[in-house]
């Protein structure tokens, strides 16, 4: 299985005005910070809402989902004693809100699924995309990941002792994934793996490297802080390395107490 990557966008790459990216004020005004961040990243990635229609699958990934809305609704239940609750945070707390809103922006009726599997969420979404391509079900897929930091989440994880050696983080990353190489293709994913046990740096290279010109990104998530889909940020960095001339990058990530994930990303040349 393999796939081509035509563009990767993070929330830092969003330069277009949000009102152009999400023209529907009705959708926009209900969106929490993470939903805005993820949806704008997605629309920037595809180059405007008019292009959403050219995708035949939208696959999103999130470890925590829309935490702010979940917290808000939970807080309202407790404080207002289950009376006169505003439905909006409940609606928006759903894990597939981002995927659904992207579809809604341009009435895209295609396959639209959300993976919520901690540190594997992004890789699971990518695997689904690659399986769809291998099955001939999709040509162009939008794959993305997002997670947000909130004060409550930070406090809870601090109490759990998770931040002794690392800060927390958040982010949104979306990628245009293609079945076939196009003029815009910047890289290709040629291996995706979910080993049952930890691999050493040596084992990663032995098992996945195909040449000497390889960069191993081994648990580089630590540079970005800890959040469930931080590996999507590492994936974005890997494609940047390829764009800057690296031939092959192996991305190995193991965090949140889960088994590792491995991606091999190569140049298309």
């Amino acid at each position: 299985m393999k796939c081509y990557i035509d563009r990767v966008t993070t929330e830092h790459d969003v330069v277009t005005d949000i009102k152009l990216l999400i023209p529907d004020a009705g959708l926009r005004r209900r969106m929490s910070r993470v939903i805005k961040s993820a949806v704008t990243t997605a629309v920037e990635c595809v180059g405007g809402i008019e292009n959403i229609g050219s995708y035949d699958a939208i696959i999103t990934a999130t470890g925590w989902g829309c935490l702010t809305d979940s917290e808000r609704f939970l807080r309202n239940i407790i404080v207002d004693k289950e009376q006169l609750l505003n439905p909006t945070p409940f609606i928006q707390s759903t894990f597939n809100t981002v995927g659904g809103q992207i579809a809604l922006l341009n009435h895209n009726h295609c396959y639209n699924v959300t993976y919520v599997n901690r540190s594997h969420s992004f890789e699971d979404a990518l695997l689904d995309a690659m399986m769809r391509i291998a099955d001939g079900e999709s040509e162009n897929i939008l794959v993305g990941a997002f997670d947000e930091q909130t004060p409550s989440q930070h406090r809870i994880m601090e109490r759990m002792g998770i931040f002794r050696n690392i800060n927390d983080g958040e982010g949104a990353v979306f990628a245009q994934i293609r079945a076939h190489r196009s003029a815009e293709s910047i890289a290709q994913v040629t291996a995706i793996d979910f080993p049952a046990h930890s691999l050493s740096k040596q084992e990663c290279l032995e098992k996945f490297a195909t040449s000497e010109n390889v960069v191993l990104m081994y648990n580089t998530y630590t540079l970005h802080g800890l959040y469930p889909t931080v590996s999507a940020r590492c994936f974005a960095e890997a494609t940047r390395l390829i764009q800057n001339g690296t031939k092959e990058v192996i991305v190995y990530n193991e965090y949140f107490g889960a088994t590792p994930t491995v991606l091999r990303i190569q140049c298309v040349g």
Binding site: A25, G26, R30, L84, L85, N86, P87, T88
Partner: peptide, 17 residues
Amino acid sequence: LGLDSIDALEIILILEK
């Protein structure tokens, strides 16, 4: 104003609250 069914629910809350 371009409101929808979710807004209708919120307006019901405004009236009551």
